[in-house]
Design a protein around this nucleic acid. Structure first.
Lengths: 329, 329
DNA sequence: CAGGGCCATGTAATCGATTACAACAGGCGA
DNA sequence: TCGCCTGTTGTAATCGATTACATGGCCCTG
C-alpha cells in the first residue's frame, strides 16, 4: 500500500465516476442498489478513507468545535471538556482545545482559520474585540462577559452563594468569612456580590478576605484568619480548592474542621466527597453544563437552530457533608 | 464584509498574482521588499485570514495532533494534556482530544481522516490492529502496549513502586498491603509486579487486595482491610485517588492516618499535598511527560527527526509527606 | 555585446473531495 | 409513436491555497 486510496481510485475500481462514489457514500439513497454494492466493495478493496481536508474545503465546514479554557489542567474544566467531547464525538465532530491564555495572536487565529465551526468559551477574560471578531457561533459556559455579547450557560452563582450562607446561618453561625475569588474574574466578583447580598438578607455579619480560587490562597487565608482576634467560626470559600487549602492549613495549625470552624466550598469537584472531612459545597453540574452547551452549539451548527439570545442560568444546589456543623453556643 | 477574503482578493488588491501573495506570507524572503510591503498592506486592508482547509489539503498535512485518553475528566490526564497543548500551540499545531473509549468505528476514523498528523496515546487498551493501522507517527505516553509496537515514554513504574516499598520498610513496616490497580491495565499490573518484586527484595511480607485506581475502590479496600484479623499497618495504593478513598474511609471508621496506618499513593496529583494528612506518594512529572512526548512527536513531524524506536523510561521519585510514619514497635 | 545566471514574479497544475448540471435510459400516458 | 417524467450516472466546475515551471529583466563577465 503505497499511498492512501482516493475517491478516484475507488471509482476506477468500481468502474464508476467519482461523483457516483461520493454519492454512494454520503447520499446512498440516490444511487442504484447494484452500483452502491459495487462501490462499497471497491471501498473495502481499496481501503479507502475520506480525506477530511478535501471535504471540509469543498463544504466550507470543519466538523470541529473549539473549546477555550483558561487552564486545561484544572479538574474543574476537565470534567466539562470531557462532557463536551462526548456530545461532539457522538455528533461526529472533533474537539480542539486550547488554553485561552495563550499568546493573543495565536489565539485569534484559531477563530479565523476555518478549522472550527463553533466555539465554546470557558473564559470571560479574553479581549472582547477579538471574541466579537470571530465569525463563528459561540457560547459562553460558566464564565461570561457582557462585552462578548454572546449566548451563555452558567449556574446562578449568586443564588448558589445564598444557599451556602443560608446553610451556615441555619447552623447558628452569626459571623461568616468569605475567602473571595480573584476580583478580575466574574465568578469571583459575582460570588462576592452574592455573599454580601446574602449576609445582608439574612442579617448576619459578613467578613471578607482576598483569594484567587487556589489551594495556596486558601491556605494563606487560613493563616490570616487564625490570627484574627475574634475569629469567625464559619468560612465560605469561593472554590473547593480554596476550601481544601484552608482546611489543610487548619489541620497543620491544629484547628479542627468542623469542630472549630465550619467550611463550605464551591464546585463540588470529585475529591470533595472524599476529603477529610468531606466538604460541604455547592454542586455545579459540570457534566450537564458541558453537555448542554455542546448540544445547543451543535444544534445551531448542524440544524441551523438559532442559539438562544440570552444567558441561561441553571440552578445549583448545596451538598451538605461533614465540614460544617452547628455553631458553638 | 460579505464573505471572507481569499488569497485571490488580496492578490487583486495588491496588484500581484496569488502566487506572490502566498509566497509573501509563507516565504517572505523570496519576495521583493516593495512587493511584500504592498501585499502586507492588502492583507490588512482585506482582513485576509488563511483558509486552513485549503492549505492542509494542498500540503497534505493537518497541523494538528490527536490525543487519546481513556478518561478526559481525570485530573491525572488533564495535566498531561495541558502540557501537550502548550507545546503544540507554541509550535503552531492544534490539539484534538478524544476519549479513547469512544465507539470503535468513530475512533478508527480519527486516525484515518487526515485531520491529525500524529497521535499521542494515553491508553494501552485499544485494539492493537486499529492502532497499527493508523498511518501516522504515534507515541505512547504513560501507558503502553507491546502489541502497538510504538515508541513511548513513561516513568519506570516498577522502580517507583520499589521506592514506596523501601520507604515503608525503612519506617520499620514489615507487612505491607498493596491496593492494586485494575489488572487489565498495564499500570495496574506493572505496579503489582513491582510490588511483589520489591517486598521480596526487601524481605518484608506483602499482601494484596484488588482495586481499580478509583476513590471508590480505595474506600472498599479500607473496609476490607479493617476487618482483617491482624491488619498490616502500611498500605501502598496504586493511585492517589485510591489512597484518598482509603484514607477517607479510615477517617469514617475512626482509624488514624498515619497513627494507625501509613498510606502511600501514586501519581502526586495536585491535591495530594493538601490532603489531610498530606499524602506521601510517588511523583509523576506529568507536565514533563506531556511536554516531552509532544516535543518528540512534533520534532518528528516538522523536522522529520525520527522517533526513538524504544520505550523510554524516566525516573519518578518519592515525595514524603504526612501520611506515613514509623511502624509502632 | 552576447551569453549566463540570478532574482522576482506570473501561469497553471494540483491537492481530493462535493455538487450543479447535463445526459441518457426506460416507463408511461396521450 | 411521441414527449415527458423519473431515476441513475457522468462531466466538469469548484472550494482556496501551494508550488513546479516558465518568463522576463537585469547585471556581470569574457
Amino acid at each position: 500500500m503505497k499511498t492512501r486510496a482516493r475517491l478516484a481510485d475507488v471509482a476506477a475500481a468500481a468502474g464508476v465516476s467519482t461523483a457516483t462514489v461520493s454519492r454512494a457514500l454520503s447520499h446512498p439513497e440516490v444511487v442504484g442498489e447494484e452500483t452502491r454494492a459495487r462501490v462499497m466493495e471497491a471501498v473495502q478493496a481499496t481501503g479507502y478513507r475520506i480525506n477530511a481536508a478535501a471535504r471540509d474545503l469543498r463544504q466550507q465546514r470543519a466538523r470541529s468545535i473549539l473549546v477555550l479554557a483558561p487552564n486545561l489542567a484544572n479538574t474543574f474544566f476537565s470534567r466539562i471538556i470531557a462532557a463536551i467531547q462526548e456530545v461532539a464525538g457522538a455528533a461526529g465532530l472533533t474537539v480542539q482545545i486550547s488554553d485561552s491564555r495563550a499568546e493573543a495572536a495565536r489565539l485569534a487565529t484559531l477563530g479565523h482559520d476555518g478549522r472550527a465551526d463553533g466555539i465554546i468559551l470557558l473564559d470571560g477574560s479574553l479581549d472582547p474585540e477579538m471574541v466579537r471578531g470571530w465569525p463563528l457561533p459561540m457560547v459562553e459556559l460558566c464564565e461570561w462577559n457582557p462585552a462578548y455579547d454572546l449566548p451563555g450557560l452558567a449556574i446562578d452563582n449568586e443564588a448558589a452563594v445564598a444557599l451556602a450562607v443560608e446553610h451556615l446561618a441555619d447552623l447558628g453561625h452569626r459571623r461568616i468569612l468569605h475567602v473571595a475569588g480573584p476580583q478580575d474574574n466574574v465568578l469571583g466578583t459575582s460570588r462576592l456580590t452574592g455573599f454580601w447580598q446574602a449576609v445582608a438578607a439574612r442579617g448576619v455579619e459578613g467578613l471578607e478576605v482576598a483569594g484567587d480560587f487556589t489551594m495556596r490562597s486558601g491556605a494563606q487565608a487560613a493563616r490570616n484568619w487564625a490570627t484574627m482576634p475574634d475569629r469567625p467560626r464559619a468560612v465560605f470559600a469561593a472554590s473547593d480548592e480554596c476550601a481544601f487549602g484552608f482546611m489543610s492549613e487548619c489541620a497543620k495549625m491544629g484547628i479542627a474542621v468542623p469542630g472549630d470552624v465550619s467550611v463550605v466550598g464551591f464546585d463540588d469537584v470529585d475529591f470533595a466527597d472524599r476529603y477529610i472531612p468531606a466538604l460541604t459545597t455547592i454542586h455545579q453540574p459540570r457534566a450537564r453544563l458541558g453537555r448542554r452547551a455542546a448540544e445547543s452549539l451543535i444544534a445551531a451548527l448542524t440544524e441551523g437552530r438559532p442559539l438562544p439570545r440570552k444567558r441561561e442560568l441553571i440552578e445549583a444546589h448545596l451538598v451538605i457533608r461533614g465540614s460544617t456543623s452547628a455553631a458553638p453556643r
